[in-house]
Every structure is written in structure tokens, then in C-alpha cells.
């Protein structure tokens, strides 16, 4: 005996969707065995629900395909950005390496030029011990000759003002500073000396000043002094020309 359609349909739905308890399920199955109309109703209901579930699966599959597109799109985007960052990093590293290499080369070559051309001036003569003044200068000069440059700078401090203005002491103090790598101090002394017409060691002052500028990578200033020297006819003329060539 069939129930009214709505109640019967609900019961069949609950059976198909496994919503009946154990007793209800058993009771339904007993009825099912004896009722061909219920069997037919169940069969068609199962087919109907099966089609609805298939439509649900197809729609879910579409949704998953969209998720796939989004996820893979984002992954591709991230990978693209990562690649761009990677290439930028490599390019930046190459630029840094190139600049570093160039700087290293320039620094190396400037350092080499300085080292190849610099030597302490060894023609300074500080007189004999005939006068007290000469004796003092001779003691100070001895420190220079022995290469005790730091000691010599201290000794110069204790000299009398007129002794400090001695051209030999001025040039020697500049050389001492260069030996001790006080290039800026050396530049201060030599710059002042090189423009004084009465300064005895004017060419030497220009030469060592040019070397100081070279050491500090002030190539233009160095070039200008070397060009001046190259036009003279003294000992430093050829040295200046050669150095100008090397700088080029």
C-alpha cells in the first residue's frame, strides 16, 4: 500500500540518502520486498538523484578548473616575478662586479704608478758641524738619511723658527709625511713651497706634489703639474713625460 506521494517521496529520499535509522531502514526494506510499485518508485528516484549528483559533480569540476587556473596563474606570476628579481639580481651583481673590477684596476694602476715613481729624495745635504746651527740640522738630517721619518718630524718640531724655514727641512718634512702616508699633510707643505719663487727645491716640490695627487687619485691636478715639469729642461722633465704617458 503506497502512502501519499509527498510522504512516500520523502521516505524514499531518506532511504536513498541514508537518513533513516536502523529500524526505519529495515522496515522500509521489508515493504520494498513486497511492493513492486515501491520498487519502481525507488528505482526511478535513484536515477533522478543520480543525475542531480552528476550535475553537481560537473559543476564542482568546473569550479575546480577555475581554482586551478587561479592557483597556477598566481604561481606563474610569482615564478615570473621571482625570475625577474633573479635576473635583476644577476645584472646588478654583474654591474657591481664590473664597477669593482674597473675600480680595482684603476686603483691598482694608480698605486702601481705611484710606487714605480716614488722614492725618497736623497740629494739633501745638511752641511757640516762647523756652526751650532749646522750641527742641529745635521742631527735632524741624519734621521732623514737613516729613514727615521717619524723621529725626524718630531725633531723638526724642536727646531728654531728660522731652521724650520730652511728649504731642505721643508722638503724633507714633506717627504717624511709621504713616507708615513700622510699625503694630505705632504700636499699642504709642497703646495705652499712650489709656488714660492725663491724656494730652492721648486721642481722637486712639483714632482712630489704631482705624486701625492696621483696617490689620492686626483689625476687632473697631477697631470697639470707633470705637464709643467715636462716643459722644463731639468731632471724631472723626462720623468714627468714618462709618467704622463703611463697615466694615459
Amino acid at each position: 500500500m503506497m502512502m501519499d506521494e509527498t510522504a512516500e517521496s520523502k521516505l524514499i529520499d531518506d532511504y536513498i540518502m541514508n537518513r533513516l535509522n536502523k529500524d526505519q531502514r529495515k522496515s522500509f526494506e521489508v515493504r520494498l520486498d513486497q511492493d513492486p510499485a515501491l520498487q519502481e518508485a525507488l528505482q526511478i528516484r535513484q536515477i533522478m538523484i543520480e543525475q542531480v549528483k552528476t550535475i553537481g559533480n560537473l559543476q564542482l569540476k568546473d569550479k575546480i578548473l577555475n581554482i586551478q587556473k587561479n592557483v597556477e596563474g598566481k604561481e606563474k606570476h610569482i615564478a615570473k616575478r621571482r625570475n625577474i628579481r633573479y635576473f635583476i639580481s644577476i645584472a646588478a651583481a654583474m654591474v657591481v662586479l664590473f664597477i669593482g673590477f674597473q675600480w680595482f684596476n684603476t686603483t691598482q694602476s694608480v698605486s702601481n704608478l705611484y710606487a714605480n715613481n716614488y722614492e725618497a729624495y736623497d740629494q739633501l745635504r745638511f752641511g757640516n758641524r762647523s756652526t751650532q746651527e749646522d750641527k742641529t740640522l745635521l742631527d735632524v738630517g741624519a734621521l732623514y738619511q737613516k729613514g727615521n721619518y717619524a723621529e725626524m718630524l718630531k725633531a723638526i718640531e724642536s727646531l728654531a723658527p728660522n731652521e724650520k724655514e730652511d728649504d731642505r727641512i721643508i722638503l724633507a718634512s714633506a717627504i717624511c709625511h709621504m713616507e708615513l702616508e700622510h699625503y694630505k699633510k705632504a700636499i699642504g707643505i709642497l703646495k705652499q713651497a712650489s709656488v714660492q719663487n725663491e724656494f730652492f727645491y721648486q721642481d722637486q716640490a712639483k714632482w712630489y706634489l704631482a705624486l701625492n695627487y696621483l696617490k689620492l687619485d686626483q689625476i687632473e691636478k697631477s697631470n697639470k703639474l707633470l705637464q709643467d715639469l715636462s716643459k722644463t729642461s731639468n731632471f724631472y722633465s723626462k720623468k714627468a713625460k714618462d709618467l704622463l704617458e703611463d697615466i694615459k
Binding site: D13, M17, I49, V52, K53, I55, G56, N57, Q59
Partner: peptide, 11 residues
């Protein structure tokens, strides 16, 4: 379609 999906598929 929506009613049946919500009832039978989404349960």
C-alpha cells in the same frame, strides 16, 4: 536546478 542541487548534492 539550484534547489535540487542544494538538497541532493550539497545535502
Amino acid at each position: 536546478e539550484k534547489i535540487l542541487l542544494l538538497f541532493y548534492y550539497e545535502q
